[in-house]
């Protein structure tokens, strides 16, 4: 019972903190570019403003358009409950392993793309086409990275993966290095950050995610934006907790939990800062360079598998 309560609190925390991470990345980026920038809590204000606005829906919209925001937000929120944030061994992590987690993102993306095509504007179709193309290359790379980890730790359950790493003495697996590099590249592509997609642009030549949600307004838009922030949050937590699991707690005592929370916050904010640095240093890529970028991610993850098979299996 304690576990379930903790799982619910942890999920709520993840959902509540996601806008802050997005705001933090933006704030650091502005600072790096010598701009004042909105404060990190600006996304909360934006969401609050959107929730308090009227919703305009196109006359030709089908039920898919109106239910997609709810569905996408629910699926992403469910995905949050699977990710170990502070503690491991929570009952919710058994609902879905990491392959199912990838499936959740795919389900959300499926409806996002359909919602983009629903109104029949060119922008929606364009965004949907690009998103599905990028995803169809990113997903296998992501899964291959996951497989690399799974073969070392003999599990695809996130909790078992992390506890295996925590319990065994630290070892630098070459396969992990490759998988980590590959999965960072994939995470950037999947969360729609520079150099794949620019969340701050509405230029028709470059936008992907924004093109699909162009027709949304009010609370629908807020849910869509929030789901995108959640996705960034989930990927960040996943990366830091899989490749740097120290600080996660196994016993559920308040001081330990508090300490775990502190550690994970620092780790995620650090990752956000690195992301901001990368986004400042890099320019957005042409759409048709993206396959090469994702092929690199795929090759890195493949090298991870091969180095696991060649070097680490005895």
């Amino acid at each position: 019972m304690n576990g379930w309560l903790l799982a619910i609190v942890q999920t709520g925390l993840l959902i509540a903190a996601a806008p802050f991470l997005a705001g933090w990345v933006k704030w650091v980026k502005c600072r790096l570019q010598s701009r004042q920038g909105p404060p990190p809590w600006q996304p909360y204000r934006d969401l609050h403003r959107l929730f308090g606005k009227e919703v305009v829906v196109a006359a030709v919209a089908s039920p898919i358009f109106r239910s997609a925001p709810y569905l996408i937000f629910s699926v992403t929120a469910l995905a949050c409950s699977v990710v170990p944030l502070v503690a491991i061994g929570l009952p919710t992590t058994a609902i879905a392993d990491v392959i199912v987690l990838v499936g959740f993102f795919a389900l959300g993306r499926f409806f996002l793309a359909l919602a983009g095509m629903d109104i029949g504007t060119s922008f929606g179709g364009m965004g949907a086409s690009r998103e599905m193309t990028i995803a169809s290359l990113a997903e296998p790379a992501m899964l291959l990275g996951v497989f690399t980890l799974a073969m070392t730790v003999h599990s695809t359950n996130l909790a078992s993966m992390i506890s295996y790493l925590l319990e065994n003495p630290f070892q630098l697996y070459p396969s992990f290095v490759f998988a980590a590099m590959g999965m960072v590249l994939v995470a950037v592509a999947e969360t729609g950050r520079i150099p794949i997609d620019n969340p701050a642009t509405h230029l028709e030549l470059t936008m992907v995610h924004e093109a699909m949600i162009l027709e949304y307004s009010g609370r629908h838009l807020a849910l869509m934006e929030w789901a995108a922030m959640l996705k960034l949050m989930i990927y960040s937590v996943l990366l830091v907790n899989l490749f740097c699991p120290w600080g996660l707690v196994v016993d559920y005592t308040p001081p330990a939990l508090l300490q775990g929370l502190l550690v994970v916050t620092v780790k995620v904010l650090l990752l956000g800062t690195i992301l901001a640095f990368a986004e400042t240093a890099l320019a957005k890529m042409r759409l048709f360079r993206v396959p090469q970028y994702l092929a690199l991610a795929f090759i890195l993850c493949l090298l991870g598998i091969l180095s696991h098979v060649i070097l680490e299996v005895n």
Binding site: F110, G120, S136, F147, C301
Partner: peptide, 29 residues
Amino acid sequence: PVAAAVLALTGALAAACFVKVFGVCFLGL
């Protein structure tokens, strides 16, 4: 595992294909 990666690619491309089918056939004008 490479075969598994091919399977993953297949699944992702199938999703792209059925977004196309449903989007073009049932949605829009």
